[in-house]
Amino acid sequence: MKARDILPLALLLGALALTPLFASNLLLNFLVSALIIALGAQGWNLLGGYGGQLSFGHAALFGTGAYATAILQTTFGVNAWVGFACGIALAALTGWMIGFLSFRARLRGSYFALVTLAFAEVLRILANAAGFTGGAAGLLIKLEPSFANFQFASRAGMLWVVLACILGVSLLTLWIDRGRFGAQLVAVRENEDAARALGVDVLATKLRAIALSGAITGAAGGLYAQNFLYLDANIAYGTWISVEVLIAAIVGGLGTVLGPVVGALALHGVGEVTKGLLGWMTGVDLMLFGVILIAAVAFVPAGLVGALRRLRMRRATP
């Protein structure tokens, strides 16, 4: 890794870490929610952006991380941080299992998108009907702010934890991006047969990517549970999260380290502004997300980060 790779990352995350010095609680709440989505989008990006496997069901991973974190605390009295770690592991396992079933059946492209969507829906229906998830009434984590409980009296605490996760995942992504595994992943994305002919174990590469992706998106789910202290099946396994992480990653820039973070912040910024202006229209922010998704695919396929990079390169080589 060179200093040039880390500089934008350090600048962006450093600036965000300093916001509690001047920002209101309202702004901090916004940042925490947007950054949790950003973390989930980073997970999606690893599989969808680098690996080229478009998942429409990342809610399955997000929800598993969220439910495991919450249930281990409330039902089994496990320490919240341990619960969070278990949530990450379980989400990784869920990702691996979904991947094992669907990649072994050679599902690709729209088939893979559909089967992931169906897995998420099955989990949503089960979580809505089962007893230990609190069923349709949902699950409440008791409010007891202390570091050991993974709950913070000030908004800054949660912001820093989320930023620390994003920093860790960004470094991991950067390392993958520059390393052998990243090259294999991109080879699989561009041409599976050619990758196989070059000796890349396609199935193993995809499985590693979906398990890592599951761990990261599961972490976002665990953070969501700790931040809002409430879950139900439509939140944890709902389509909204699958769609938001996907749009954030695409708008920000597929297969880039910072794209998902930039995308999630931009998307949620625009969403909040439109809700402020046109709040009487239900769903106006989501409508705009749809427009942004189509516009991004049509006009800025490289995403915000990709477009910036191209601009900089054009300036460097006159």
Binding site: F56, M281, M287, G290, V291, L293, I294, V297
Partner: peptide, 27 residues
Amino acid sequence: PSSHGEDRNTLLVTLGLSIILENALLA
């Protein structure tokens, strides 16, 4: 026009369309 002849783009564009239509009806 917006999918540039790539299947996965079409998938994303129709997903975007469904979000727009559903929320327009909701509004």
